[in-house]
């Protein structure tokens, strides 16, 4: 099959594939029972982790204090040398 033929076949079949995929997930999510509770727990957990903990409690120390890679390296070098004294 040439590339052009393959593209034509894909163009004909793609909408059906996308619509099947949509229906697959729509039906899956609609028919969930315990899954609905689990998704709720997942979203609450991810919100707490990424929105609250990550932003307010877990800044990346080096990224927040230094703009360049050299700056980060110099800081760590200083810490490594000073901590040994």
């Amino acid at each position: 099959m040439s590339l052009i033929t393959a593209l034509k076949v894909f163009k004909m079949k793609a909408p059906k594939f996308i619509s099947n995929l949509y229906l697959f997930y729509r039906d899956g999510f609609t028919n969930m029972t315990v899954g609905k509770t689990l998704w709720l727990i997942i979203f609450i957990k991810l919100f707490i982790m990424f929105v609250i903990l990550r932003i307010f409690f877990f800044p990346n120390i080096l990224n927040s204090n230094f703009d360049s890679e050299d700056g980060k390296a110099s800081h760590v070098r200083k810490e490594l040398i000073d901590n040994s004294k």
């Binding site: 800044p59 990346n60 080096l62 760590v76």
Partner: peptide
């Protein structure tokens, strides 16, 4: 599924800690 959903992403917190508490190590 119950176990997977509750446990998923709990390990990511360890990576948060590397960047904050253990930044010298991370670098």
């Amino acid at each position: 599924g119950v176990n997977f959903a509750i446990g998923v992403a709990t390990g990511i917190i360890l990576e948060f800690q590397f960047g904050t508490n253990w930044s010298n190590y991370s670098w």
